[in-house]
Computed example of a mutant assay.
Amino acid sequence: MSIRRGNETLDTYLLKVFCILMAERSVSRTALKLNQSQPAISVALKNLRAVFHDPLLVREKSGMVPTSRALALLEHAKAALGAIDSMLEVEEAFAPEHSRQVFRIGSPDYLAPVFAATVVARFRREAPHARLVLHALGPDFDFEQSLAEGRLDVVIGNWPEPPDRMHLSVLLEDEIVCLMSAGHPLAGRPMSLEDFRAAMHVVPTPYSISQRGMIDTVLTSLRVTRTEVVEAQSFMLAPYLLPGTDLIFTTTRHFARYYAGLLSLAIVESPIDFPPMRFYQLWHARNHHAPSHQWLRRLLTDCGRSIHPAA
């Protein structure tokens, strides 16, 4: 692999010679390391000087020392060689049981706790030495840029219209229900649309500044308004606001069932025919073919399929 600059050519061989010359600061020692003759390394140094229009190494009493230009070029040369090596490497099969890789997943805090727990349990079984980082998404967090830059490996969300610039697949679907205090007047009986309109609602702060949530989108399309009296910045805080109050929280069945098992809460069928809440996993093309990331996405998919609304 080579790059032309004017009449001179810079290739991987010259970059390797340059990096070793900078480390050894000796033509003879560089020749030994590369199993080359000293004249060959001298010619390579001459070519490097022509490419960069700089002496690169100069003689002083203590020996050869790099110029400031050479020092500035060194990190770029190392990075270039590393990138080329990565391009030419044949990626080995991924063995999760031996991996010490760090995997980073971004998700909103309303993801069903039972799903997250299933993912963590399986991750620990299959990759006991690896590390899993769960990053909570907020309204100001640019998850697309984080995926593009490699700061996140997968993002999970329920966009009404998922971003079309990424790869995606469906993880799970869940129905919408209403969660309320067990002592709420509407608990234990069917709820009408009029009941829903007249009720006092707690709503979450939107986690995406670019897209409306599915529930709000459906309510707007049906011209159904609700009285929103409490806004909770944390989705997981909302259930704790319900016991002993007249508030209703519209959410997914998995999420509601989890907190109904912890608190004195009741789950009531929604009077509105919401479509299923569909959760996707989203990833960037940079990781599409990486075996370790394929393993992670497959793990998430399997965990999603193991979760059933009636479970």
Rank of each mutant, 00 (worst) to 15 (best):
E228V: 12
R257E: 15
L241Q: 01
P239Q: 02
P206E: 06
L263N: 02
Q211M: 07
A238P: 01
M200A: 14
A182V: 04
H201I: 10
T205E: 12
Q211R: 14
Y207H: 08
C178W: 00
T225L: 10
C178P: 00
F255Y: 13
L222D: 04
D195H: 05
P243T: 04
M191S: 08
G157V: 02
L263F: 04
A256R: 01
I215K: 08
I267L: 10
R253P: 03
R226W: 04
M166Y: 13
Q233S: 14
D174I: 03
Y258M: 12
N158I: 03
R197C: 08
L171Y: 02
Y207F: 14
M191A: 13
P206F: 08
M180V: 03
T217S: 11
E173P: 00
R189D: 09
S210E: 14
Y240A: 05
A199M: 05
V268M: 10
D216V: 07
P206Y: 08
V218E: 04
F249D: 01
S169T: 15
C178I: 10
L171Q: 02
D216Q: 14
L237W: 06
H184G: 10
M214V: 14
M214F: 07
I176Q: 05
R257A: 14
A187M: 13
L172P: 00
D164K: 12
E194L: 10
G183W: 03
